[in-house]
């Protein structure tokens, strides 16, 4: 597999009325790598994701994707280039049945272009995707309005939505937040499989133990600045990282 750089972030910064939410962050990501982004609450992880995916325009700095400058790109264009993201506060389309929630990304310009004209049966594809992320096929859940889904399933649906776009780069913003231990445990093997299949992943996560099972390397943010980058085992030994997590235990056993 070629190891070309798929994403490069150069000196990316964002100010919110004087507050530096993200400041001078740089990193590179090669195709097929899985990157974890960690840091204490409010350190700018989600803002960083929003900057990369175009949901927020950066104050300065650049983002390169597959060698192209995509700084400040319109968010839907980023998707059509192959960057799919999940939201921390995942909200399904409440009034639409669960499986039809996936028809929307499956109908998107990107997927229509990839498949080339006729898609065949989008309903069937949607059901397949739901099975992939752990919905039971024969239950009635996929046919109910998505507003009635329990939280764990909402997150799975969000993941399925990302995958349905057949992305080159998947960005998962705190996928595990609000999920129970067993729910996380059941979805972890799936993420590991994604990585092993050679998908490029960025995961923003608080749960380090689970994160480290999936990712190859991590970037640590604190107060919007990158304070460390490297292999998970190295990073947790870093003094500055430990200080930033002061009070909340860094689990080095991972």
């Amino acid at each position: 597999m070629s190891k070309e750089t798929i994403l490069e972030v150069r000196n990316l910064s964002k100010n919110f009325g004087g507050v530096k939410a993200v400041s001078e962050v740089s990193f590179q990501l090669k195709r097929g790598e899985a990157l974890g982004v960690m840091g204490p609450n409010g350190c700018g992880k989600s803002t960083l994701i929003n900057l990369i995916t175009g949901f927020i325009k950066p104050s300065s700095g650049q983002v390169f994707y597959q060698g192209k400058d995509i700084t400040g790109i319109a968010p839907h264009k980023a998707v059509n280039l192959g960057i799919a993201r999940s939201f921390q506060m995942a909200k399904p389309f409440y009034n639409i049945p669960v499986y039809k929630n996936l028809i929307i990304p499956l109908f998107s310009p990107r997927v229509r272009k990839l498949v080339g004209g006729k898609f065949g049966d989008r309903d069937e594809a949607a059901i397949h995707l739901l099975e992939d992320v752990g919905f039971e096929r024969d239950s009635s859940i996929p046919y109910k309005a998505a507003g009635s889904l329990p939280h764990g399933y909402v997150k799975r649906l969000e993941l399925a939505r990302c995958l349905s776009l057949e992305p080159d780069l998947i960005i998962l913003d705190e996928l595990f937040s609000g999920m129970s231990m067993s729910e996380v445990a059941s979805i972890l093997p799936f993420l590991e499989r994604l990585r092993d299949e050679g998908k490029t992943l960025i995961m923003v996560e608080h749960r380090l133990k689970e994160l480290f099972r999936v990712v190859d390397k991590v970037v640590v943010l604190n107060f919007g600045k990158k304070i460390a980058e490297g292999l998970p085992e190295e990073v947790v030994q870093n003094e500055e990282v430990r200080k930033s997590y002061l009070g909340s235990e860094v689990d080095s056993s991972a």
Binding site: T53, A84, R85, K91, I104, L106, R161
Partner: peptide
């Protein structure tokens, strides 16, 4: 239709429609 579904989805959650690659 699937087209109508996208329209309906915009009302529910425009952010996710953008994240699905639509110019809303």
């Amino acid at each position: 239709t699937d087209y109508g579904l996208v329209l309906k989805a915009i009302k529910d959650n425009d952010r996710s429609v953008i994240a699905a690659g639509f110019n809303i």
